[in-house]
Design a protein around this nucleic acid. Sequence first.
DNA 1: GTTTAATTTTGACAATGTCAAGATTAAATT
DNA 2: AATTTAATCTTGACATTGTCAAAATTAAAC
Lengths: 217, 217
Amino acid sequence: MQESKQTYHHGSLRKSLLEAGESVLVEKGFKGFTLRECARRAGVSHAAPKHHFGGVTGFLTELAAIGFDRLTKELKSGIAKAKDLDGEFIATTQAYAKFAEQYPEHFRIMFRDDLLQVESQILVLASRKTFTELTNVILRQRGEAEITVDVFSDFPKFEDLINDIVIGWCHIHGFAHLMLEKQLPIVGKNMEKRIVKSSSTRLARLIQNDAATRKSD
Amino acid sequence: MQESKQTYHHGSLRKSLLEAGESVLVEKGFKGFTLRECARRAGVSHAAPKHHFGGVTGFLTELAAIGFDRLTKELKSGIAKAKDLDGEFIATTQAYAKFAEQYPEHFRIMFRDDLLQVESQILVLASRKTFTELTNVILRQRGEAEITVDVFSDFPKFEDLINDIVIGWCHIHGFAHLMLEKQLPIVGKNMEKRIVKSSSTRLARLIQNDAATRKSD
DNA sequence: GTTTAATTTTGACAATGTCAAGATTAAATT
DNA sequence: AATTTAATCTTGACATTGTCAAAATTAAAC
């Protein structure tokens, strides 16, 4: 961790701190995340992180953004492997849940309006990319082309689409969150896979069929 | 807050501390929740809470249990006002989301496996009641009688039912959670109500129809 | 080469959770 | 009723933390 530190100026302390911070978050969890521990792991003084992130909130905001980046990546790679429409929605649910399982502490801070600087550009950009990825999944389920406009801000024009996005995302997110916090008494990977597959398939069909119905009008 | 405190022994300090703790949680949020502040509000020494709750984790566990009790109550009362099957599912989604909005800090700690003593009897009992309430909603959607067995532990016998519970609960919970943490760009009560109504109705119909299809076999 | 700005350190402060030891009171026992 | 025992609460202490201001060190700008 602690690179060559001959100079007073570290050179890339920000990056080192982020790495250190991530290791703290992963190992000690949100509860054990302290600026001083991050500083220790990066091999710098206890007040160094303050200068780069403003405080613990700012630090967590950066880590949350990294989390969204990683989630987006996992979604993309999961989706790429899917063979058909049903499979794509299943893969999305699986990838989202897998991320929550692999990076539970990231997931926990990512969706915490009170712990983060929600106005942070880097966070907004990262989370928006995740959101775009999910929106595109829904659009493909509907057999529609990708769009770039902010559909939610044009209500009720896109009410149909917004509805599908909400239905899809709530399912995907709700499942991951409830599984992470051990609220769904689903035990074993086998049971989990079967439940994800059938529930996601049903939802995918619902969205696909409703879209088909609308077209035949 | 601070009752008659002539005696050295408070008499009902545990209860007073819980009230104080809840006020701290509501006012200062999870971040500002400290045992010492709770003690201050209850008018006792700083180490008093330790004796009753073991630590901050134990204290939060009790408050989370209270949260589940309240959520169960809100669900019941929301469901009671519904006029038909669709309305009942809509009411459930609304009540769940309303609770998250009214008690955001409760909601945030309730679903945090890492912050609570998950083995706590009081917490397990309270959360199980909420779960039972939601299960019953699904059973009614399916046109089935309430059952008392633990359906999840008997897999794959109850796979169909488990599937519906997962579909329903993920939607309900996912919506509330994403709304609370401002991830769903739904602005205004009007838009929210319309989205909840249509998305919940679609899901209710899905569950109802699938149940009907199964019966006609 | 000098000034200016950006990094990083040092030292300090109040606040917190936790612990051990003691004080006070209720409950149990005889 | 007296005494022992256990429960409840306080006090004082300790290490740890986030934050701040001032100083030290280096890079950048001019």
